[in-house]
Design a protein around this nucleic acid. Sequence first.
DNA 1: GTCCTCACAG
DNA 2: CTGTGAGGAC
Lengths: 264, 264
Amino acid sequence: MVSIATWNINSVRLRLPIVERLLQEEAPDVLCLQEIKCQEHQFPAQALADLGYVHQAIHGQKGYHGVATVSRIPLKEFSRHDWQDNGEARHVGVELLGPGQGMVIENVYVPAGGDEPDRTINAKFGQKLDFLERMTRWADAVDRPTLIVGDFNIAPLESDVWNHKQLLKVVSHTPIEVDTLQRFKDAHGWTDIGREHIRDPDRYYSWWSYRAKDWKANDRGRRLDHMWASPDLAKQAGRHWLREDARDWDKPSDHIPLFTEFNL
Amino acid sequence: MVSIATWNINSVRLRLPIVERLLQEEAPDVLCLQEIKCQEHQFPAQALADLGYVHQAIHGQKGYHGVATVSRIPLKEFSRHDWQDNGEARHVGVELLGPGQGMVIENVYVPAGGDEPDRTINAKFGQKLDFLERMTRWADAVDRPTLIVGDFNIAPLESDVWNHKQLLKVVSHTPIEVDTLQRFKDAHGWTDIGREHIRDPDRYYSWWSYRAKDWKANDRGRRLDHMWASPDLAKQAGRHWLREDARDWDKPSDHIPLFTEFNL
DNA sequence: GTCCTCACAG
DNA sequence: CTGTGAGGAC
């Protein structure tokens, strides 16, 4: 049994206390973090090693973005893709070496895409779509048991957002993003593990904006974080769960952590 | 008996907890704060009123400088001088109305003066000297029992600094500053209350730089904060003390608070 | 070292 | 609303 977690932490240095808390309470074998917002030498490597997460693959940069995969199971850094080719740190891939031998875990932070869902007036939106297209071409060639997790910054289903109609023109839930993500999905036949367990049309959110004074008030959430398995691996997926209560922890991230167990 | 305190707080919003602590532990009748670093509407008026300091005279500005006098004794705002005539908030004067009736308390934050002690290459140094000269002209006309307190940004005596020789060329202890401050003193015959109680050449510091990793290590302090009384009022000065331990409180200011009691 | 503001990003 | 960074001040 191997358990994997993913969490957009929105600054790992500032939120080390809640990362430690999560690791102590849930003890996943592997934790994939996005938006670590630090350079590799600034990553709290020792603190996480002290909790047993001695195997670490960190792809950081100054101030923004950045991903890290930390593990109690030996792993080997496998790849770092720069699908935008602009030097941003948005991906790290690892291969498990001990239990779960041979499984590949791709940790990705898809660009948010700015405010305006129109690439002619908002370059960031175009970059987001391009990022997904390049990821799609890459997925075509995936030939090993692979789990891709992270903040995709897209909520594909109606039940992935608190108000489908109202969000159709809001970046993260526009038809073009949903279609582009669907093409990525089809390119490899990924299984959306979250939605295997909490099935459409049940409510499933992983993110609530900081901007609302009370995130719970109208439950205006979106499912931006995902765990998708390649067809072979998907068959071995077991339990899947969330820690929604983490949105209420001290100095919370705006995202919550997701977990999946694999029978490996 | 009326007790007065002065403290350069270096952001009153960030350090509200230690301001509250001081008021609870020492309960001065009046507290004069410098470097509140906020506008008047941002001042934590309610929190201090809740502790009984309902009478407040605030002269603030955005981001920098700013002074405030809060009191358990009724007071009337008396004056706001802009001795530099540049709009900076560096002074507020009040008159006590209840106990201590008629006493005037001038709360002042003298410009730091930059790094280079030469007005030809450092305009800030010239502004500091000019500020003091204008304050001197003003002092000439003081005709009521007055206490002037605050961060003068000058350590006049050899025993006011940890190393006289080494600081002779460091802004805050240069001869020209000391001379200029002396002329201010002479203009009204102010009594340096602090030095009436902790007499030269005894060590007396009120400020230790943040830049030293351990402020206590070599005790590299300076006496930048002062409480000076007009001749009539000086006769009624009683106890005078410091809270040097405040330099060790949680998230401390680099200055410590000073206290004087008056038999009024 | 520790503040502040501002710009930028989410 | 909540981060990071840069620049300025002390």
